[in-house]
Every structure is written in structure tokens, then in C-alpha cells.
Nucleic acid binder design. Structure first.
Lengths: 360, 360
DNA sequence: ATCATTGTTCAAAACGCTTTGAATCAGTGT
DNA sequence: ACACTGATTCAAAGCGTTTTGAACAATGAT
């Protein structure tokens, strides 16, 4: 295996110059750089990672904790993220090591990983509303990046979508179609994204002057059956006048809602509009919607490269404030939404005094 | 962060002695070793992995390729193995990095990983009958360990179970109960373990002088529906006299076979004996069998520590021949097997001349 | 001719560990 | 007293990088 010294000897240069040339430092002449690059290529030079890491003081390893369910399965998104992250991190000469965890303490696995190995940082995912991990890792001085965000304005690097906008855009879109009774099938409320979406959904309804009885906000996992179970009583009219539009946190939930409508003889979009947020996970792409589903869309796949980039920049010392990305999901109108049905333009009655709209 | 030199300074020793003391070399006196250990503990010493790796010439990283299905899911056993392996490898100061792969070429992902990073070795799993990976990795001089084995007598380190014995023990057990018509619901035939089990099943039947029409060996994934689909026509008598015992490659398949029996009004074990090989995966533990299932059992969880150990020993230079573990699955008799039903003691008719038993 | 300036390169130190070969020290037998 | 052991310990070299501080050469200005 060729080393820097070998290349230097080959060209009559010092190892220092060769190192600089390969790392693109400005003070080496263009001619030298080219000669070095050529020789490195020719000799099949591969930098020794251990030596690089020793010299730079970094381990070149970042960690991620995989939260397992009791049945030893993980989030559907896991492999998608794993594939994307390993590739993106590899491009920056960094390895990803995983630890699986089944415990109740959210920070314990991080503590274990920290004391065992020296990691350069962590990738966190699935933030909960009162997530203790950011404070814990900050206290230990460990860089990390979050996939998502656990509060509206975090002080750490993260990549997430504008969750309030998802709800707001959806409500406004439905209102423009004349809808006045919109229900929400949300994600699991322990997750921060779900809390944000629910809050913004309520705010948006209030901003439109529309009542929203509590019973018309459900929450559950991103499964077809969760969508079905939530939608069925609403559409059967068991909770009061049925909603004319249902907003779902995930596409499988939307599939369930549509099945509930079908079972009750309701036509989409004639009698009911259904829309969802779409993470564009490959396994849900297989869901064939009829009619095709109107969605707000933000491919999860697109998160990996920025996450890797931002984490490594943060490890390299970039301030967190510069490493925050919020993307706005785009609204794609398809066939599952339509104008409010004739005669169904009445909002729900107010069950409680109107909510005072939050400032801002 | 304390270094070896710090500890040496603290005790008036050289870094070399401290290194030896901590690594348990025999030439340091017991007193010194204790003092060093105490000081290391007190100063919170953690060895710098990069420095260790640079000095020893090893990267401290081993790789594993995760084969994904088209729907971005992996083997059910994946997380079980991941958790066990990372823990076992961590105990030997080694990290596991994963690469996910969806391609058709079995060796391409290994080639990619090799050229990108310098790995100390690989963990391979799910060997197929004509697995090209051992030859490829050997040609590149990369150590590896196999979970399972791709042929009867491999020349590489592996940890696997004695698959022929699984079939043999099961057949002999059923024969002892008087059964003469046994059918096999096997694993997917591309996997080596399934080929071994099928071969040994046929041999064992032949050794008992029993006919085995081709139609009574099925194969499929380890799912309940695969078991059901395979068993139903047999039990309905559509393929000739129905088997009095069914041997399954996995417990979900056994669940399917038992459901098929129930649907046809057959009682287990009165009318049909069912047994299976049990990998003891946690997600299948949830399967409640009624009656409880007779199994050959070899917990997959037990494979991780030996796999890690053998791989690292191999990297350290131990010869492959010393690093091969074959465990014999134990037979646990429960309620799903019983004596052959009265009047069903007749073997299947020979459809072809009796197979000459393979030597050995 | 001299002096600064800029651009390019180098030798050497550092990173923290392992390992080699030599040195020290106690104890033993002569 | 002597050399000879065996048990401990040490200083130094090395692993392959990155980075520092200095050196060198070419250029331009004085």
C-alpha cells in the first residue's frame, strides 16, 4: 500500500507537499498538484484512515441509535435512511455505527455509546416533544444533527420540514375548495412533528373562523388500519356531521380513510376529499390510490445528504445556526380532493368559545 | 483526555510499561500492573482507538452487507443479528459498518466497500448454494466469517448449525413414532441451508426405506402463508395419500401448516404431526402454538458472539480450520407430534426405483 | 546592488499507541 | 569478589498522516 512518502519519493517531493497537494491546499503549484494526483492514481494510493484520524484528532465515526419495537422491527423508514446516510457519510470519509436499543430511557444508549467509544457525533431521529437528548448531548459537548426538530426554533443543527406549513397549506387548500369541516388523522402525538402539525391545524382552522370539535383530531401510527379506524366513526356520522375532508399524516392512513369511505358508500372526491402528507418512502409508493392522492410531499430520501453534510460541518466547527435546514413540502394536487359537496358547506357548531388565535 | 504518558508520569513509569500493564502482558510485575490499573481508572483513561489502530495496522472496522428486498425491508433476523454483533464486536474494540444493497450482483457491494475503505474483514450471512463471495474475498485476501456455510466442508471460518442433522434427527424421531409418510416444507432453495436440509431429508427417508414422492417437498419463505399454501393440497389429499407428519423449516411455516390442518378438520397431533426448526427469533416467539410445537432449536442469538470472536481471531491470524463452529440443534418434544394415526402406517408407493443412498 | 514580497517547498514535530532491543536490577552459584 | 540468570523496566523507533515554522527561489521595488 502506497504512502505519502512513497509518492514523495517517486516525485522528489516531501510527504508534506504531497499531503497538501492531495488535500487541495492553495499553496501548492498547479503543476505539482497535477503531478501528485497522477502519481497517487498510478500508485493506487489510499490514505490510511487511522493515521488521518490520529493526526486530525477525529475518530471518523458517528453514531446512530436504532429504536426497536418490542417485536424487533424498526421504523419503516429505517433502511431508507440507513442507505442514504452511509452513502453520504462515506463521501466524507466517515463511518456510521449503529446501536440498537429497546429500553425506556431515551438517553441511556447515547451515554453507553459515548463512554465506550470516542465518537465524533451523532445522528438523532424521531424527536419527541420533550426530547431530552439535545440537552444531554450538549451537556457532554458532543456534536449531533437531528432529523426533524423537537421544538419550533432549536439551537442545534437539524434538517426538517416546515410542519406548521404542512397543516396550514393543506387547510387553506381545502378551504379554497369550499370545505368547512376538516378532520385530522395525525401521527403519534409523542412525536414532535405530530404536535406541530396538530397545533398548526387547529390554528389554521381558527384563523379561518372554523370550529374544530376535539373529536375530529385523531392520532395513530402510519398504518392503513389506523386510518380506517379513525375515519370510520366520523364518516358514519357517529361524532356529529361528517367531515367533508380528511387530512392524514401519512399515505397509509389515507388509504385506510379511503377504504372507510368506500365501505360506507361514499365516493372520493365527490362526497369526501382526502389528502395526506407524503414522505415518499419507497414501500408506500406501491400503494396505488384510486383516485390518486393529493399530497404535501417531502421525500425523506432528500434528508440524508444534508444531514451528513451538516453533521460533519458541525464537527468541523461550523456554528449550529448555519446548519439548520427547513424545507417546505410542496403541494401536489391530484384526484382525491375536490370541491365541497353541495349542502355540506356548514362548519361544525362551536362547542366551546372560539380559541383565541396565538400571536404570530 | 489522559494518555499512556500521563499515567506513566503519574507513577514514574514509561508509557511502554503502562501499555503492557493495561494489555495484560506477562512481563510486568503484579504490583506495577495493579498500580497502573488503578491510576488508569482514576484518571479516566480511555485508549485512543485511532492511535491503537495506526500502531497495530488494523482499522478496527468490519463490514456487513445488508441485502434489501424490493420493498426496502430486510430479513426478519436482521436486527437480532445487528444487535448481537455490534455488542460482541464492541467488546473487542471493533466497529461494524453496514452497507445496504439491492443489486443483483452478490459480490459488487463487497468490492465497493473494499475499495472505499480499508476494512479488517467482513461478516457474511445467508449463504447460497453456489455463493461466489468466499472465493471473491479470498482472492482479495480479506478475512471474513460466515453465518452459516455455503457447502458441507468450507475452508473459511463460520458458525452454523448441522443442517443434515436437523433433517435426520427429525425424520428419525418421526419414524420412531411410527410415521411413514413425512413431507417437508423447506426454506427457499437458493439458500444453502435449505439445500442441505432437503438433501438430508431425502437421504434419511431413503435410509429408512421410505418413499418420498417429489411433490411432498415444498419450499418457500419463512411465512405463515407459505406454510399454509404448501400444506393445504397435501392434507386435502390432492397429491395422493396425505402425509401423517410435516416437517417445516421455520415456525411460521408450521403455524400455516397447522392452520391448513384445522381448516380441513384434522386434529394435531391426532391426525397430523407437525414439527419445525426454530431459530428462536423474538418476533416469532409471539406465535402461540396450540398444541405447543415440537422443534429442533438453535437460537440465532447465540451465533453473534462466536461470529465476532472467530472473525477477530481470524483477522489476528488464527487459521480458518480452528474457527469453525457447527452446533447441533436440540430436539424439544412438545405437543404437536404424536404417534402415527391408526391405519396410516403405509409408506407412499415408490414412483421411481429406490434412490441409491449416497455414500457416507 | 539591496531589501522586501510572494509563492512554493521542506524538515521536523506532533498525534497516542505498540513493539523492539537494550538496560537495569535482584538474586544465584562459583 | 565474579559472572550468569531471569525478571522488570526503559528509551527509542515506528505506524502514516497533518500541521507548524522555517527555508528557499523567484519577483519586483528601491
Amino acid at each position: 500500500m502506497a504512502t505519502l512518502k512513497d509518492i514523495g519519493a517517486e516525485l522528489g517531493l516531501s510527504a508534506a507537499t504531497v499531503s497538501r497537494a492531495l488535500n487541495g491546499f492553495p499553496e501548492v503549484s498547479a503543476r505539482t498538484r497535477d503531478r501528485v494526483r497522477e502519481a497517487a492514481e498510478r500508485l493506487g494510493y489510499r490514505p490510511n484512515r487511522s493515521a488521518q484520524r490520529l493526526a486530525t484528532g477525529r475518530s471518523g465515526v458517528v453514531g446512530m441509535i436504532v429504536k426497536l419495537r418490542a417485536d424487533m422491527s424498526a421504523d419503516q423508514t429505517f433502511f431508507e435512511v440507513l442507505a442514504g446516510l452511509t452513502a453520504a457519510l462515506a463521501a466524507r470519509d466517515t463511518d456510521l455505527v449503529l446501536a440498537v436499543d429497546q429500553g425506556d430511557d431515551p438517553v441511556a444508549p447515547y451515554a453507553r455509546m459515548l463512554e465506550r467509544d470516542l465518537l465524533d457525533g451523532f445522528v438523532l431521529n424521531a424527536p419527541t416533544a420533550d426530547d431530552p437528548r439535545p440537552a444531554f448531548l450538549r451537556a457532554h459537548g458532543v456534536p449531533f444533527v437531528m432529523h426533524g426538530q423537537h421544538c419550533a426554533r432549536p439551537d442545534y443543527p437539524f434538517f426538517g420540514i416546515d410542519n406548521p406549513a404542512v397543516s396550514r397549506d393543506s387547510v387553506e387548500f381545502l378551504v379554497a375548495l369550499g370545505h368547512r369541516r376538516m378532520a385530522l388523522i395525525n401521527g403519534e402525538t409523542r412525536f414532535a412533528f405530530a404536535a406541530e402539525r396538530a397545533g398548526a391545524f387547529r390554528d389554521a382552522m381558527a384563523a379561518e373562523g372554523l370550529a374544530l370539535p376535539e373529536g375530529f383530531v385523531a392520532s395513530g401510527p402510519p398504518t392503513e388500519s389506523a386510518g380506517y379506524t379513525a375515519a370510520l366513526p366520523w364518516l358514519a356520522g357517529r361524532c356529529g356531521p361528517r367531515p367533508t375532508a380528511i387530512l392524514c399524516a401519512s399515505t397509509p392512513q389515507a388509504a385506510g380513510a379511503m377504504r372507510a369511505a368506500r365501505d360506507l358508500g361514499l365516493k372520493v372526491p365527490r362526497d369526501l376529499s382526502v389528502m395526506a402528507h407524503d414522505d415518499a418512502l419507497p414501500h408506500t409508493d406501491a400503494l396505488r390510490f384510486d383516485p390518486p392522492l393529493t399530497v404535501t410531499r417531502a421525500p425523506m430520501r432528500d434528508a440524508c445528504a444534508p444531514l451528513a453534510q451538516q453533521l460533519i460541518d458541525h464537527i468541523d466547527g461550523a456554528p449550529a445556526a448555519r446548519l439548520q435546514t427547513v424545507i417546505r413540502a410542496g403541494l401536489t394536487v391530484r384526484g382525491s380532493t375536490g370541491p365541497v359537496p353541495q349542502g355540506e358547506e356548514t362548519p361544525w357548531p362551536r362547542t366551546t368559545p372560539p380559541v383565541t388565535q396565538a400571536p404570530g
